[in-house]
């Protein structure tokens, strides 16, 4: 059991390292303008992001990402609860939700521009709206799958509506809500980049796009690399948070498996 864990860890970290090494050596003498040596890319990475454009572009993008994601998370869970618990609300907005979620969020960016301009609000709105649906739908599913036994017990104990929502339904739906949040986070990341294609050219996505269009390929690769690294780190952070919040659930699952 222990050995398997170590082996998995070695495979998990070793393979990216090997691939990076392969990239380094294979690209070392490249003269192809579109595929510069990894060394050049890393030098530009350091020059651009550590820390020349860190505050003006990296923090700006991440700020939009987290603000949009936070709005999506709160609104998504709240609307999800309303939809699942209040039938008239469900009848009212269910068709609308399924209509809206089918539209690629990136396609909405031009509409937002005409409605609210192309400043930070547009970017945050696009991110929030796109990231809303996975969380909301997961919340609805999570609440609907709460077992009737649990609700019966809550009724027997004469829990108030508020107690039922916050002490029974929310924790019970939490594992599914978190799966929804994880998908929302990925969607938010994509829309963060897409929303920077228009408006003032600030942000990681905008800088990477500009580098691509002016054939500064090393800068472009540096931007892609940064996006990859940020995506990776954000995912790790999210997993840590999830493990903390859902520790009771992960523990109970482990117990159930062991039994």
């Amino acid at each position: 059991m222990r050995n398997v864990a170590i082996r998995n860890w070695v495979i998990g970290t070793g393979t990216p390292v090997l691939l990076l090494a392969a990239w380094w050596f294979l690209s070392a003498n490249s003269t192809d303008p579109f595929f510069p040596p990894l060394e050049t890319i890393l030098i530009r990475f350091q020059e651009l992001w550590l820390f020349d454009h860190f505050q003006s572009d990296v923090l700006l993008s991440l700020g939009n990402l987290f603000l949009g994601f936070a709005i999506a998370a709160v609104v998504g869970v709240a609307v999800g609860f309303a939809t699942a618990l209040v039938p008239p609300v469900r009848w009212m907005i269910d068709p609308l939700i399924h209509f809206l979620r089918g539209i690629p969020p990136v396609a909405l960016v031009p509409i937002f521009i005409s409605l609210i301009g192309f400043g930070t609000q547009m970017r945050v709105t696009s991110i929030a709206l796109a990231a809303l649906f996975p969380t909301m739908i997961a919340t609805v599913d999570g609440i609907r799958s709460v077992s009737n036994d649990l609700m019966d017990v809550a009724r027997v104990y004469r829990l108030s509506r508020k107690e039922r929502v916050f002490n029974v339904l929310l924790p019970a739906a939490m594992p599914q809500i978190f799966s929804g949040l994880q998908v929302s986070l990925q969607v938010a990341f994509i829309v963060m980049i897409a929303s920077e294609m228009l408006g003032s050219s600030q942000g990681i996505g905008a800088m990477t796009l500009l580098a691509q269009q002016s054939f500064m390929t090393a800068d472009m690769w540096a931007g892609i690399l940064l996006l990859g690294v940020i995506g990776f780190l954000v995912n790790i952070l999210f997993s840590l948070l999830k493990r903390k919040v859902l520790s009771w659930y992960i523990g109970s699952r482990r117990m159930a498996r062991a039994a």
Binding site: P110, I113, F118, A206
Partner: peptide
Amino acid sequence: NWMVLDPSS
């Protein structure tokens, strides 16, 4: 203050 916008926007 340069702003990137498609022609119709």
